[in-house]
Simulated assay, not measured.
Amino acid sequence: MSMSLDLAAEVFREAMRETVKRYSLWYLVEGVLLVVAGILAIIYPVISSGAVVILLGWLLIASGLLQGLSLIGARQVPHFWLQLISVILAILIGLLFLRDTTQGLMTLALLLIIFFMMEGISKVVFALTIRPFPNWGWVLASGLVGILLALILWASLPVTAVWLIGVLLGVNLISIGAAIAYLAWQVRKSDAATPTQPPA
């Protein structure tokens, strides 16, 4: 029996909404930690640009691992593979930052452009998948911010400062973290407000 495209889309959305509800605590913790990582990425280049590449590498790895945790048990949802690619990309770029801290700013900027673009696209797809989930627009906005940051960094080439890379990475992590944390918080709040049905 064939299923209409609209019905299939609704089934996928419902699966995604259930996943967000089930793992809302993980999403909340992930969001808060990403915001903290974003603040560090913004503050650190201003204080000392000497070791900023190492810090950015570790922040990318940490953000990749945190977002990877949110994918546990979510293999059946439509955005899984795109989100997984984004997670792997964050970890790989972080490892590249740590492996050779002397590489040129141009290389770092190009790697981050790819990361921002993939992360932005995956968040846009994620947001469109869970709509009309309450507050799905925040996740959509964080994805659009990622795409915008990629374009800003691209426009600044070939002259790119270390502090700009740090600030843009920080803004990206804060926007993703805030959107995910807010979504998870609202889900947990609405679940707590919903009275449980007595068994029949």
Rank of each mutant, 00 (worst) to 15 (best):
Q76G: 15
S86K: 00
T101H: 07
S86G: 00
I85A: 15
L95C: 02
R75H: 13
Q76C: 13
Q103H: 07
Q103C: 02
L95T: 09
M106E: 04
T107W: 09
R99I: 13
L95N: 03
T102N: 14
T101G: 06
L96S: 03
L95S: 04
M106C: 00
W81E: 15
V87S: 11
A90G: 01
R75K: 06
Q83G: 10
R75N: 08
I93S: 02
I72H: 09
F80I: 14
L96T: 08
Q83T: 11
Q103E: 10
W81H: 12
I91T: 11
I85Q: 09
L98N: 09
Q76I: 11
M106L: 02
P78S: 12
I72W: 06
Q76R: 14
D100N: 11
H79I: 08
V87M: 11
G94D: 02
T102P: 04
V77L: 14
V77H: 09
F80C: 04
G104W: 01
P78E: 10
I91V: 15
G94I: 00
R99W: 04
L84Q: 08
L89D: 03
T102W: 04
Q103I: 13
L71G: 13
M106P: 01
G104D: 01
G94N: 00
S86V: 01
V87K: 08
M106S: 11
R99Y: 11
L71V: 08
Q76E: 15
L82A: 04
L92G: 09
V77S: 10
I85S: 06
L105R: 05
F97V: 02
I93R: 04
I88F: 07
T107V: 13
S86F: 00
G104E: 02
D100H: 05
Q83D: 13
R99F: 08
V87L: 08
G73N: 13
Q103F: 01
A90R: 06
L105H: 05
L71H: 13
L105C: 00
G104P: 00
D100V: 08
L105A: 01
L95P: 00
G73Y: 14
